[in-house]
Design a protein around this nucleic acid. Structure first.
Lengths: 208, 208
DNA sequence: ACCTGAACACCGTTCAAGT
DNA sequence: ACCTGAACACCGTTCAAGT
């Protein structure tokens, strides 16, 4: 499993082939099937190790819980980014490993400290991780292609500018804004939208 | 390209192999390279056709713009779900096709009708599509594995219940809530969090 | 000049043959 | 009884050989 992580850190999730991990252990691909039932299982087990690297931060403080949530989510994002493509794992399977649960536990603690309704808190966990994972996955794809974020942003801007935007006047006038900011700033904005929304949207009716 | 869509609707994105698309056209895989530069390019071109199937709905109405945004995003979600795995395409490349731009144009129109600050609107587009795509991708992975959403939910609940949750008391007490609701309800909740957040978070400082 | 069959360099997974 | 080399059934992409 540690061998798999070394491969993923260096070559990204698509580089984590059964053969590559086996080579790291000086054996053949077939031998891995003693420890994992298939590649999907291998990646799931590896993912929980990544989750285990996330620092939960200090104890929940009702006076600054929002900032604590924001910071925790940034640390999750950083952990995912350090293993390119790892974010694709929780997008495909709900993580049930102990380290993933540990992060959810802390997130719930923080929201309870903030007085958030339990029903909202429960669904927030689901929704926000979807957002964190998607953000990390997007960044990772660029990283895996060996391209800088700024370089990609330039290409996108050029692609948009070369479009015929006569029938898209609002889009055209907002082009500079649409391509402004870096990934971290946009991530922070998204997280804040959802935290703030938490305080202004009625808790879901979970039918209990 | 239409041939590719038929394959994707029936077999999902991983079924869209160069050989499968070529077979649909009664030719060999090598012949596709006349029309696309590689598989990634094929998927990008196909994605814009999927985006083209989304109905933009009626003209923006300041009295009910929030609901209009919500409905539009649901229609995007449905389009993505009808081509399993297609949501992975926009997670890896910023879509710059005309049909994707058309949807963004409408989204911006709706927010302007609602009096949302342009800076917030611009970043909202990015953030909300990340959420929509991640939601669709998650659903699709289950669908591709040939499993019902409810069936997967049961497995997750069981996995959680079999964990030692002594050190995760908050998580344990919220287990019923964490596993409540279906995908659509959670999606709606997430979208509402972000729309409402839009009205309560200061516009980002885009450094202009 | 254009198209494409066959080849190349990979995959995940299985299983018979070795220890 | 355990481990694993070699095989199987796939990939995306290239290119020489045919039309």
């Amino acid at each position: 499993m540690q061998a798999g992580l070394r491969v993923m850190r260096a070559r990204g999730i698509d580089g984590v082939t059964m053969r590559a991990v086996a080579a790291e252990l000086d054996t053949g691909a077939a031998s891995l099937y003693v420890y994992v039932s298939n590649r999907r299982d291998l990646l799931n087990q590896m993912f929980d190790l990544v989750a285990g690297e996330v620092d939960l931060g200090d104890a929940p403080d009702p006076a600054r819980w929002r900032r604590q949530v924001e910071d925790l989510l940034f640390r999750v994002l950083r952990a995912l980014e350090s293993y390119p493509g790892s974010a694709r794992v929780p997008l495909g399977n709900v993580p049930t490993g102990p380290n993933a649960v540990r992060i959810t536990e802390r997130l719930i603690e923080l929201m309870r400290a903030g007085g958030v309704d339990d029903r909202s808190a429960a669904w927030f966990v689901d929704v926000i991780f979807l957002f964190v994972n998607a953000t990390a996955y997007e960044t990772d794809v660029y990283a895996e292609a060996g391209r800088e974020q700024a370089e990609v942003a330039d290409d996108v801007r050029q692609a948009f500018e070369s479009l015929d935007l006569a029938s898209n006047p609002n889009f055209r006038s907002m082009l500079p804004l649409l391509t402004s900011g870096d990934g971290d700033e946009r991530f922070r904005f998204g997280v804040r939208l959802m935290i703030e929304g938490l305080l202004h949207v009625a808790p879901p009716d979970v039918g209990e």
